[in-house]
Computed example of a mutant assay.
Amino acid sequence: MSSTCPPMTVAAPAVQPYGFGLFSVAQWPVEADPHWRCGVQWEPYACGPARLYPIDQCAEGEPPEKQVEEGTPLVEATPLVVYGGYHCKLPGRTVPADIEDRARQSLALGEQRAVEEAVWTGAAGNSPWLASPDATVLNAAETPGAGDALKAIGAIAALEAYLGATYGGLGVIHVPRGAVPALAFYQQIVRDGSVLRTVLGTPVAAYGGSPNTGPAGEPAPAGTAWAYATGPVAIRRGEVLVTPTPVPAAGFDRKTNQVHLLAEREYVVGWDCLLGAALMDISC
């Protein structure tokens, strides 16, 4: 039976991108030179160790020489592209700008999750990534199973100890969003404005775009989550590009009366010189 009172079309509820993800803990350098889109490299400050020097006022002869390595190994990060879009029938659209807005919103509301997936897995051909064979596994077993998972307190302790022993500054801890309730229950994270932090002040990124995989690419066993520790994260990104232009005429297919637009932008995500991993028990 056809309705005699069809539903009225209204505006969709306002949506905000989720908080406490990777974007909340990242640094956002702005480059005047557009060549960052080819990838970047830098010489880190805090990856080299400071050393002790014994003093013996009574020793004879020349004192031992203070040893300093030549330079610091460069850190590299490669580019990736994140895109969203909108595909619809053009007839009946009285406000063409709404089509472009929906393409842009598709990107704006999904790009953090997409970037997090790329950073966790390297799925966009990007490097570095978290679930990498290069990660130092901090559990007792090199390829831990559910029985080898550290309790939430032990996992954060292991990641903080790793950061303290291998890096001269404040790093970042990366976890799936599903691990946050357990970390909060055990009082391992606190809210600091728009950032989650450990008791020691280390920022924690809660990933929505995380497949919860380990350094061998294996999914975490049920009731567990992989957590990673890195140096500070730097994200470079370009402006949003909407194609084709002009909008929406260039995207209109007269054969189908449909319009198709893409909104995309380039990213380069990298961090300083270290990568630790711990399998964590998130049961309560």
Score class of each variant (00 low, 15 high):
S2C: 00
P7H: 11
V10F: 05
A11H: 06
P17M: 04
Q27E: 14
A32S: 14
H35S: 15
C38A: 15
G39W: 03
Q41G: 11
E43A: 13
P44K: 06
Y45T: 15
A50E: 09
A50N: 11
L52N: 09
Y53V: 09
P54F: 04
E60I: 08
G61P: 11
E62F: 02
E62V: 14
E62W: 01
Q67D: 04
T72W: 02
L74Q: 09
P91K: 05
S106G: 13
A114Q: 10
V115K: 05
T121W: 10
G122M: 09
N126S: 15
L130E: 01
S132A: 12
D134A: 15
T136A: 08
N139I: 03
A141N: 08
A146Y: 07
A146L: 04
G147L: 11
G147Y: 12
A149C: 02
K151E: 13
A157C: 02
A158R: 07
A161W: 04
L170C: 14
G171D: 06
V175Y: 06
P176M: 00
A179G: 07
P181H: 07
Q188N: 11
Q188M: 10
R197A: 12
T202N: 10
S210Y: 02
N212Q: 05
P219M: 07
A220S: 04
W226C: 10
A227F: 02
Y228E: 00
T230Q: 06
P232S: 09
R236V: 03
G238F: 01
G238K: 05
E239I: 14
E239C: 09
V240P: 03
L241A: 07
P248D: 06
F252E: 11
F252C: 08
N257L: 07
E266S: 14
E266F: 12
E266D: 13
D272L: 09
L275M: 08
L279Y: 06
M280V: 03
